[in-house]
């Protein structure tokens, strides 16, 4: 059983520990940013907007990458589809 996103233990360098499953993960800088924004209850499209604002990336690329990333989070059971 996986934890929900809000239960994840994170450090500033992207290390993530899922206390429910006991598994450990590494998030990239932008991955960590997205997870933190989602933890605050932000909608994905809003979070991607932050990504474009904070990092040197165009909206299309950010969307493509974020979609894939969100799919990975779903597969981990951290967010629901």
């Amino acid at each position: 059983m996986a934890s929900t996103l809000s239960d994840l233990m994170l450090n500033d360098r992207g290390f993530a520990f899922d206390p429910a499953s006991g598994e450990t993960f590494q998030l990239s800088t932008t991955g960590l940013r997205l997870v933190r924004l989602l933890q605050q209850g932000m909608k994905p499209e809003e979070a991607v907007g932050y990504l474009v604002g904070e990092f040197e990336v165009d909206e299309n690329t950010a969307w493509r990458d974020a979609t894939e990333f969100l799919r990975a989070l779903e597969q981990l059971g951290w967010i629901s589809a």
Binding site: T24, F25, Q26, G31, R33
Partner: peptide
Amino acid sequence: TRAPYTRPTVQRLSQGPVNPF
């Protein structure tokens, strides 16, 4: 100024040795 971009990724640490270097 915006920070340099890398893709958002999540990697399970049991998948191979745990060593960023």
